[in-house]
């Protein structure tokens, strides 16, 4: 993957700059990315939540405000990397 696609390289570099360690995997369910990929638009699924139990669709779904705010820092780096590819 590395070096094959400028989008991926920009995304991976932004994550490295933010010390975001990625666990790459295939999505276990279905989301709207599939409609984009069908149209030939490459898409990554990423929500910047670590140290957080997986509670989507569950009772007592929550997110810590510091994880949320850290996510904004991470997106600043990722978005500026991707928007300047």
């Amino acid at each position: 993957e590395d070096g094959q696609c400028p989008w991926w390289d920009a995304f991976a570099k932004a994550c490295a700059d933010e010390n975001v360690c990625l666990e790459k995997t295939v999505f276990p369910a279905a989301t709207d990315s599939k409609y984009l990929r069908i149209k030939g638009i490459p898409a990554l699924g990423f929500s910047p939540m670590n140290h957080t139990p997986i509670l989507l669709h569950d009772h007592n779904e929550y997110l810590n405000e510091n994880i949320f705010l850290r996510g904004i820092d991470i997106y600043c780096t990722i978005i500026s990397g991707l928007a300047n590819v």
């Binding site: 898409a43 699924g45 929500s47 590819v85």
Partner: peptide, 10 residues
């Protein structure tokens, strides 16, 4: 190019 949702990670 697009970004969309992922999951939390404990």
């Amino acid at each position: 190019f697009a970004l969309d949702e992922g999951y939390a990670n404990p």
